[in-house]
């Protein structure tokens, strides 16, 4: 049997690796109609429907579909959009990252999930270094609380529930993030 990467790791690092992959899966799933299928469990997140390119627009592109739920934090927040962008860019910058030219806006959920993918991946790499690990857990906790979780909860609340995979994504992300925060609360 093929050996799973990280299977011989300490539990915390193994967990960090798995969490990193899950964040990546969610980031892909919110970025593209057929993204994240290689990672996310199909019993929770069904595979893309045949009309995925339409359903994704219906679900998440408020520029096009009146009933869509925005994936941008600015649309769910009372904060000034550029003020929000600045804080997020500062987060990414603080951890040595810069958005690519083709990236979504900094408040897009896929960008925020990708940032969490990075922090958790870094936690996996530095899990044996207590100070570094604590720094990373602290950053994750705060980023989740300030940005990603409120955004995910608002999306869950506003997203239509008749969109199959995309409704499931909107439902399951806050469920996962709740696990994450629960875990971070006991770290």
């Amino acid at each position: 049997m093929k050996r799973q990467p990280g299977s011989d790791l300490p539990e915390t690092r193994q967990a960090a690796l798995e969490r990193s992959v899950i964040y990546r899966g969610f980031a892909d799933a919110f970025r593209r109609p057929d993204g994240g299928c290689d990672v996310l469990d199909e019993t929770l997140i069904p595979p893309p429907p045949p009309n995925a390119r339409k359903a994704f627009v219906d679900a998440f592109d408020e520029a096009i579909s009146k009933s869509a739920c925005s994936l941008h934090e600015a649309a769910h927040s009372t904060r000034d959009q550029m003020d929000l962008f600045e804080e997020l860019v500062r987060w990414y910058d603080h951890f040595g990252l810069r958005r690519t030219d083709t990236a979504e806006l900094p408040d897009h959920i896929s960008v925020q999930l990708e940032f969490m993918h990075f922090l958790t991946h870094q936690e996996y790499l530095h899990g044996d270094e207590p100070e570094a690990a604590e720094t990373l857990r602290s950053a994750q906790r705060e980023f989740l609380s300030r940005h990603l979780m409120p955004l995910a909860q608002s999306i869950e609340e506003k997203c239509r529930d008749d969109l199959g995979r995309y409704s499931a994504l909107a439902d399951q992300l806050p469920a996962y993030l709740a696990l994450e925060l629960e875990r971070r609360g006991t770290d």
């Binding site: 798995e18 690519t100 990708e114």
Partner: peptide, 24 residues
């Protein structure tokens, strides 16, 4: 639910950084 509920079997085979939105 647990964390592993979200992971597809074999998903860790693709573990590694994949970040189209960021550069270092």
């Amino acid at each position: 639910l647990s964390r592993r509920s979200f992971l597809k079997a074999g998903a860790l085979g693709a573990a590694g950084l994949a970040m189209p939105d960021f550069v270092a």
